[in-house]
């Protein structure tokens, strides 16, 4: 599992640094060197406009990771808030909110995303928000369950006895204590969001050009598949390795947390 953490760190760093130093290169076109195979000058080869795919793939990291991290954040914030409120309030509020969760769970999420992105337009931010807004339900259930079990614990009861208000208890005691599993599910959410962005790009509603994302580089590579394997291989590999790492880390976290709890 060391490898996956290492990979994520490298990709994360690249995502932060690449736009600063490679942004120009990622956009600069050289028509005399279009669709060239990987070489010392262009490590990942070039695309059909003669742009350096190494630079584009690294810059794509910031877009793809950015979209998925923002999406995961949205889903965590939304899910945690709803789940905590539902768990803490109980009664009608709980039933109503959980009804909403059940309802959202019934929709084929990808259909919803597609419908919204297709009609609202496909900016990077829109995509991130829409993915976030359609993927918070798992987190909400998780947090609610945690809160339910924490609600009657001694420290919460003590706090309430001391006159603390509902908001204080929820945000000060319940959410921080329920946060651990949420983090695990957020990491898993990042990996799912990367794949979703790729799928949207495939259908032509992904992050718009010229901003490179792994999804749209891969898609552009698809139209040159028989001529330039590198144009789809490298972005495909980036998606593959990153999703794999994030997923492995997420599961690992989850497992460790569960382990802790059974030990406790």
């Amino acid at each position: 599992m060391r490898i996956s953490e290492g990979w994520l760190v490298v990709v994360g760093l690249a995502a932060c640094v690449a736009p600063l130093i490679l942004a120009g290169q990622a956009q600069s076109m050289d028509f005399t060197h279009a669709l060239e195979a990987p070489s010392p000058a262009h490590w990942f080869g070039t695309d059909s406009l003669g742009r350096d795919l190494f630079a584009r793939t690294l810059c794509g990291a910031s877009v793809s990771l950015g979209v998925s991290v923002v999406a995961a954040l949205f889903s965590v914030v939304f899910g945690t808030a709803l789940g905590a409120v539902a768990g803490y309030c109980g009664g009608w509020g709980d039933r109503l909110l959980m009804g909403f969760v059940d309802m959202m769970l019934c929709f084929p999420t990808f259909f919803l995303i597609l419908a919204v992105v297709a009609v609202v337009g496909s900016g990077a931010f829109v995509i991130a928000v829409v993915i976030g807004v359609t993927s918070w339900m798992g987190t909400a259930r998780l947090v609610r369950a945690e809160v339910l079990s924490l609600r009657e614990r001694e420290f919460v009861l003590a706090s309430r006895a001391l006159g603390a208000g509902g908001g204080w208890i929820v945000f000060r005691h319940l959410i921080p204590n329920a946060l651990a599993p949420v983090i695990a599910s957020a990491v898993l959410g990042v990996s799912a969001a990367i794949l979703t962005e790729g799928g949207l790009s495939f259908l032509g509603v992904g992050v718009p050009p010229p901003m490179p994302s792994w999804g749209n580089i891969l898609m552009e590579g698809k139209s040159t598949l028989g001529v330039a394997w590198w144009a789809s291989f490298f972005p495909g590999m980036m998606i593959f390795l990153t999703v794999l790492s994030a997923h492995a880390i997420g599961e690992n976290l989850d497992k460790r947390l569960k382990g802790e709890r059974t030990d406790a």
Binding site: F202, G236, F240, L244, H247
Partner: peptide
């Protein structure tokens, strides 16, 4: 199983078709 999950589905599909 994780590797299979991490592949973009359309990429995998195109590879299998070719």
């Amino acid at each position: 199983t994780l590797a299979a999950f991490s592949m973009p589905a359309f990429w995998l599909a195109l590879l299998l078709i070719s």
